[in-house]
Design a protein around this nucleic acid. Structure first.
Length: 268
DNA sequence: TCTGACCTGCGA
DNA sequence: TCGCAGGTCAGA
């Protein structure tokens, strides 16, 4: 589920309620999601620690509780919910972080694809490529990355080892904005198309963050409300509906076992 | 490089 | 009841 804009929205909303707060207790309800430690180790490492910062790397959320660092990947349906007091316990809560004083942070994940790691130093996530919203991804870098690639451009954008954070919704949306067919090979784009796609990539992601992410089904912000970006999607889940730019019928194809939506007239 | 499996909920 | 869903990864 959550791609970069959803994870960044969650991070931005968690910061004001969690940063500087001490963790009183940690309860883990689903052992499967802990990847590299036991429940006991996870609880011991975090209880009594202060949340100094929450950062993001691609789709990973990192709680800085030095000397412990807890890393969450939200999978397809993971979200963080905030509760001010011991209110009714929501369904599918796998981790319950009680903050000292008042309030809980719940990690909820109905489909259980989320994963959690514990590190005793700032985690290195070496398999991850460059963050697409950072200034480090310039148009020139992007051009260099695409050069000679035989992978089709949609799958290239979603390859986390190249660019970390883009998923199925936004890959379709940024290709539509750039008027580039998802079926083309990445290395075949000309310099003008690469620049256009670079601009589209930044714009689509920053707009989605401003809109608090896309709620297609499970995703909610930390406050429990839906995102707003679903109201601005141009192609995703719009198969057979008219393209909002030219009126042509939106087409759906399967690429890498995932649905891709595009306009065959706008996107050549 | 591609496919299917992981798990659960929802809509047709 | 069945197919599909925003991600990732092992295995072919």
């Amino acid at each position: 589920m959550p791609e970069l804009p959803e994870v960044e929205t969650i991070r931005l909303q968690l910061l004001p309620v969690a940063q500087g707060r001490e963790i009183e207790t940690v309860r883990v309800h689903n052992l499967v999601q802990l990847q590299n430690c036991s429940v006991r180790e996870f609880r011991k490492a975090l209880q009594g620690r202060r949340i100094k910062d929450i950062s993001r790397r691609g789709k990973y959320l990192i709680f800085h509780c030095a000397p412990a660092f807890a890393v969450f990947h939200l999978g397809m349906s993971g979200i963080f919910l905030r509760s001010r007091r011991d209110s009714r316990f929501p369904q599918h809560i796998h981790v319950d972080i009680k903050l000292k004083g008042d309030g809980h942070l719940y990690f909820q994940d109905a489909r259980k694809f989320g994963k959690i790691w514990l590190f005793d130093q700032p985690p290195q996530l070496p398999q991850l490529g460059i963050d697409p919203i950072s200034d480090r991804l310039t148009a020139a870098d992007f051009q260099h990355m695409l050069q000679g690639s035989q992978t089709n451009i949609k799958l290239f954008l979603m390859d986390q080892s190249r660019i970390a954070g883009i998923g199925n919704i936004y890959a379709s949306e940024m290709l539509h904005r750039a008027k580039i067919s998802p079926l083309r090979r990445a290395g075949e784009l000309n310099p003008v198309e690469v620049k256009t796609l670079h601009r589209a990539l930044k714009k689509i992601l920053s707009s989605a963050i401003e809109n608090f992410g896309t709620t297609y089904s499970a995703y909610r912000t930390v406050n429990g409300s839906t995102g707003r970006n679903q109201n601005f999607l141009k192609v995703y889940q719009r198969e057979a509906l008219p393209c909002l730019t030219c009126g042509e019928s939106i087409r759906k194809v399967i690429q890498g076992s995932r649905s891709t939506f595009y306009c065959p007239r706008c996107q050549q």
